[in-house]
Amino acid sequence: MKLYEPVTLAMPLAKEIGEFIRREGKLPSGDELREILKGLGLEEGCLDRGLALYRSRFVIALAFPRGETVVVDAISSSGELSDALEVIAYHDRKLGAFVVEILPTNDLEYEGNVGIEPIIVDEKTLELESNPVLGHFEEDEEGLFLVIERETYERWREEGDINICPICGGELAWKGERAYCQDCGYGVRVVKG
Rank of each mutant, 00 (worst) to 15 (best):
H91W: 11
I102T: 02
I119V: 14
K124F: 14
I88D: 00
V72C: 01
E24D: 13
S76G: 10
E127C: 09
G115F: 13
R55D: 11
F137P: 04
D122Q: 06
R49E: 14
N113C: 10
L47H: 13
R23K: 15
K94H: 12
S29V: 07
S29C: 03
V72Y: 00
A52L: 09
D73H: 13
A74K: 02
V133Q: 01
D122G: 01
I75M: 08
R23T: 11
N113V: 01
V99Y: 07
Y110S: 13
G39F: 08
E24G: 10
I88Q: 11
V121P: 06
D92H: 08
I60N: 08
L53V: 15
K38C: 05
G79M: 05
S82A: 09
G41V: 09
P28F: 05
V70K: 01
F137M: 03
R34I: 02
I60A: 04
Y90F: 15
L33I: 07
V99M: 06
D73I: 15
D48V: 07
D48Y: 12
C46S: 15
E43M: 09
I120D: 00
S82D: 13
K38Y: 07
P132W: 05
H91Y: 14
D73R: 13
A97G: 03
A84K: 05
E127W: 11
G79A: 06
E123G: 06
K124A: 13
I119G: 02
A74N: 02
G79S: 07
E139L: 14
E123V: 13
D92L: 07
S130V: 07
L33T: 03
D48F: 08
S56F: 05
R55K: 15
E101I: 04
P65N: 07
S29A: 04
Y90A: 12
Y90S: 14
V71F: 04
L128E: 08
S29L: 03
Y110Q: 12
Y54V: 01
G67I: 03
V70P: 01
A89H: 05
K38M: 10
L95T: 09
L134G: 03
I60W: 07
N106A: 03
V114A: 13
A74Y: 02
S29D: 02
L37D: 05
G39K: 01
D48L: 12
F64Q: 07
P28E: 10
I36V: 15
G96C: 06
E138M: 12
E127A: 13
S56M: 03
G112V: 00
Y54S: 00
D107N: 11
E32I: 00
V59H: 06
Y90V: 13
F58T: 09
D92C: 09
L85V: 01
E138Q: 10
E127Y: 10
G50A: 05
P104W: 00
